[in-house]
């Protein structure tokens, strides 16, 4: 597995090629890209700054991937998450999962993203016309993570 926290942008095509190159048994690649929007809670967002907890962030994402690998047949998984200041339309996060078949790849990719949203230590601060504000955690993200308890 690969987990990278970086300020630089990422290239999803290059990352998928890299992940696929190693294994001709791969039949499915599922990916997710999270992107900065120009609006949140009805307010215009000019930019967003992401803070993280170096060390714990990487460990918690590795733990999430390990859990995914325990539940689905996954060959490999990669998570890249950007930190620092990002503008609308910029990419924030990338998840790629490779497996033999799509079911495992889709499920593991969604699980990793849902768990990352509620368990990996990142915090967003957004700049709006009325000033900068910390983004509040959303109950809907807890519900999304929680539903995985009932499955599998």
């Amino acid at each position: 597995m690969t987990v990278r926290i970086q300020s630089d942008d990422f290239d999803i095509g290059a990352e998928i090629s890299q992940l696929r190159r190693a294994n001709p048994k791969i039949g499915a690649v599922a990916s997710f890209v999270g992107v900065v929007r120009d609006v949140n809670e009805g307010d215009a967002v000019a930019e967003m700054t992401l803070e993280h907890y170096p060390g714990m962030t990487e460990k918690s994402i590795e733990d999430i991937i390990t859990q995914a690998r325990g539940r689905w047949k996954v060959f490999d998984a990669l998570v890249v998450h950007r930190v620092g200041t990002l503008k609308p339309t910029e990419q924030i996060v990338l998840v790629i999962v490779t497996s033999a078949h799509r079911g495992d790849a889709f499920a593991a990719c969604e699980f990793i993203m849902d768990y990352l949203k509620t368990r990996a230590p990142f915090w967003k601060k957004e700049t709006t016309p009325s000033g900068a504000r910390w983004v509040d955690a959303r109950a809907i993200d807890d519900i999304a993570a929680e539903r995985w308890r009932l499955k599998g």
Partner: peptide
């Protein structure tokens, strides 16, 4: 020590503790 913990988690000399708001990444 870089693992989520509840209030009754033991703390000893040399430990690294962190307090923060609920996370909002992704």
């Amino acid at each position: 020590n870089q693992a989520m913990a509840s209030g009754d988690a033991p703390v000893a000399d040399g430990d690294e503790i962190a307090f923060f708001p609920p996370v909002t990444g992704g």
